[in-house]
């Protein structure tokens, strides 16, 4: 294929990935990497590099919209950013030495896991228990906008989430995905935050984590301008649309849609990794 049609097709695909990424707080990378690898036959390292750029663009674009809506918990985000960014640097350094079939397998497993989690979750609550002592000391509790006012929420299991975030960071740097899935897992399932608070706070964080990994990737020569161009512009466009739509949609059909896409791609990535 020549450059011009290739750019157009990749930009269109990136736009779709950006919209889904913003809607689910996953940052688009988790869909973008398999799309580039499986559909456009881009080598894994280039795909991961392009995806990181996309993650930064989505996160910035969507965070700009969310911050003014009041969902994002900045204190919590910055606190969890610490292990996440450290992991992000480590993962990016690892990406240069881990063999490609292994990257495929890990990616497939991460995808499967994300799909499973977003499908399984129920809206049960344990919110009558008081928050963790550490959460109170750090002032991590906050409130988020609901119809006709603000609702307070509590924060549980701070330490396990903190540890889980370093894993999220490593995966982000290793695979170029932004690790939104693990972020949301930690905040939504472990800390028991409201879903929209989890996704928006995750969105705020992944751009910063991805920027750290992108610095390492740039030095290692993984970031190609010919891919950055369509991916960044496409994803940014998609993310703006996705972030606006989030205000009006119900979270449940989103999870189902996301799980279905992710499951398909997971199987294909694992298959590719195994047959190389």
């Amino acid at each position: 294929m020549t450059t011009a049609p290739f750019l157009l097709l990749v930009a269109a695909g990136s736009c779709a990935a950006g919209a889904v990424g913003a809607l689910t707080g996953m940052g688009g990378g988790i869909i973008l990497v398999p799309m580039l690898v499986l559909v456009f036959h881009v080598e894994m390292h280039y795909a991961a590099g392009a995806s990181l750029i996309a993650v930064i663009a989505t996160s910035s674009g969507a965070a700009a919209a969310y911050l003014s809506e009041g969902y994002t918990n900045l204190r919590l985000g910055m606190f969890l950013q610490l292990p996440c960014i450290a992991g992000g640097i480590g993962g990016a350094l690892l990406a240069a030495v881990v063999p490609v079939p292994a990257l495929f397998m890990v990616f497939g497993l991460v995808l499967l896991f994300s799909g499973y989690l977003s499908f399984r979750r129920k809206e049960e609550s344990e919110r009558d228990r008081p928050s963790d002592r550490l959460a109170l000391r750090l002032g991590l509790e906050s409130s988020y906008p609901v119809l006709g006012g603000w609702r307070r929420y509590r924060v549980y299991r701070v330490i396990p989430s903190f540890l889980l975030m370093s894993v999220a960071g490593v995966l982000s740097g290793l695979l170029g995905i932004g690790s939104g899935a693990v972020n949301v897992l930690a905040m939504d399932q472990v800390m028991r935050l409201p879903y929209k608070v989890s996704t928006t706070t995750s969105n705020f964080m992944i751009g910063i984590t991805a920027a750290a990994s992108a610095g390492v990737y740039l030095n290692d020569g993984f970031i190609d301008p010919g891919l950055t161009l369509p991916v960044m512009l496409g994803v940014f466009g998609g993310a703006v649309v996705g972030a606006k739509v989030l205000m009006f949609v119900n979270a449940k059909p989103l999870r189902v849609l996301f799980s279905a896409i992710v499951l398909l791609m997971a199987l294909e990535m694992i298959y590719k990794g195994a047959t190389r």
């Binding site: 294929m1 020549t2 450059t3 011009a4 290739f6 750019l7 456009f40 036959h41 881009v42 080598e43 894994m44 390292h45 280039y46 740039l218 030095n219 290692d220 020569g221 993984f222 970031i223 190609d224 301008p225 010919g226 891919l227 161009l229 512009l233």
Partner: peptide, 26 residues
């Protein structure tokens, strides 16, 4: 991107194999 497309729009894409970027782009 406009400059890039203008000059290289009809080149064939080459992303199947990883070569690493030239040092000036790093």
């Amino acid at each position: 991107g406009s400059i890039f497309l203008w000059r290289h729009g009809s080149d064939v894409v080459h992303y199947r194999i990883f070569r690493g970027e030239p040092s000036d782009l790093r």
